[in-house]
């Protein structure tokens, strides 16, 4: 393959003086992105198409596929007792985890954006939980939230509270899961900090001359200027919290009494535990459509609240 690339390009280089041969040039350019394009077809687009087809099939992986029309989708909405509860739990988790991560990310970034010595160290420390594996992270939280010997209950008792059954009480566990998601605010923080450092200083200088205080500057300059990043971060965190799995498996395994059985676990178990590939495909497409729907709504609403500079964004 390397030979062909070299050959086509050589013709190009030589042909530059006499014959520009634009068609050949165009083709040789495409050769360079072939690795991605092949990967895209084989590992993303092809599988997605296949899974769409499969979602209309009944296939328990061993026997032949049979076409069942919308039966998988109908089953999800009408028969599967875990479908709506797992969607509700996922929305519950997302509705709390994402806003908390975004707000905390903005507030911490704003703090670190001030003239603070050693802010690179602070920045790194807040990001630190993000470099752990989700599985290890879930495991550590499992230890820290243990009812009998967990350090969290020790803190609560030290402050005069009662021991909490973080991972044993179905009503509480989803909140424990949301709480552990707070420590993922490092990633949004980094992105917001980048956006804030990009705001020209003279905006703040002008505001200072006009007598605007810290709060006013934050709400009138900082916040509007980082709205494009806010949109980007919300979408990123939305997708990651909809698909959260490693932490949940390691922290709760979906329990107790399915209290943290999130939608991604439902897909995972149907596919890899019960080998219901057709049904799992339908479930994953439902999730895809939900995520896409929310993303599109966010994009449409962004015209109202996201500030774009006159020049227009360049990707």
């Amino acid at each position: 393959m390397d030979g062909t690339i070299a050959a086509t390009s050589k013709t190009d280089a030589r042909g530059k003086q006499k014959d520009k041969s634009p068609r050949l040039r165009k083709r040789s350019g495409f050769v360079f992105i072939l690795p991605w394009f092949i990967g895209f077809l084989c590992f993303t687009a092809g599988p997605m198409l296949f899974s769409l087809v499969m979602s209309f099939m009944n296939w328990d992986y061993m026997q032949n596929m049979t076409f069942v029309g919308f039966a998988n989708y109908v089953k999800a909405f009408t028969q599967d007792p875990f479908f709506f509860p797992s969607i509700r739990r996922t929305l519950h988790f997302t509705a709390f985890a994402v806003p908390i991560q975004v707000v905390l990310g903005i507030l911490i970034a704003n703090l670190f954006n001030k003239k603070l010595k050693g802010k690179k160290v602070f920045r790194a420390l807040v990001y630190l939980p993000c470099v752990l594996s989700g599985a290890i992270y879930g495991l550590v939280w499992n230890n820290m939230l243990n009812t009998d010997f967990g350090v969290f209950n020790y803190f609560i008792q030290a402050l005069g509270g009662e021991k909490v059954e973080w991972l044993a009480d179905p009503k509480i566990t989803i909140w424990a899961l949301i709480m552990t998601a707070i420590w993922a605010a490092g990633m949004p923080m980094i992105l917001f900090l980048g956006a804030m450092q990009n705001i020209p200083d003279h905006y703040y200088e002008a505001a200072e001359i006009d007598g605007a205080g810290g709060f006013r500057q934050f709400f009138s300059i900082t916040l509007p200027m980082i709205t494009p990043t806010i949109l980007f971060v919300i979408i990123l965190q939305l997708i990651s919290s909809f698909t959260v799995m490693a932490q949940v498996l390691a922290l709760t395994g979906g329990g107790p009494a399915k209290a943290t059985y999130l939608y991604s676990l439902l897909v995972y178990e149907n596919a890899f535990k019960y080998m219901k590939m057709g049904y799992a495909s339908a479930l994953s497409w439902i999730m895809f459509l939900i995520v896409m729907g929310i993303t599109i709504v966010l994009f449409l609403s962004s015209r109202k609240w996201v500030y774009y500079e006159e020049k227009g964004g360049n990707i």
């Binding site: 599988p47 997605m48 994953s284 999730m287």
Partner: peptide, 12 residues
């Protein structure tokens, strides 16, 4: 979301 691709990838 990786959920959409992981099932068909696994089959592949």
């Amino acid at each position: 979301p990786f959920d959409v691709t992981i099932v068909p990838q696994f089959i592949l």
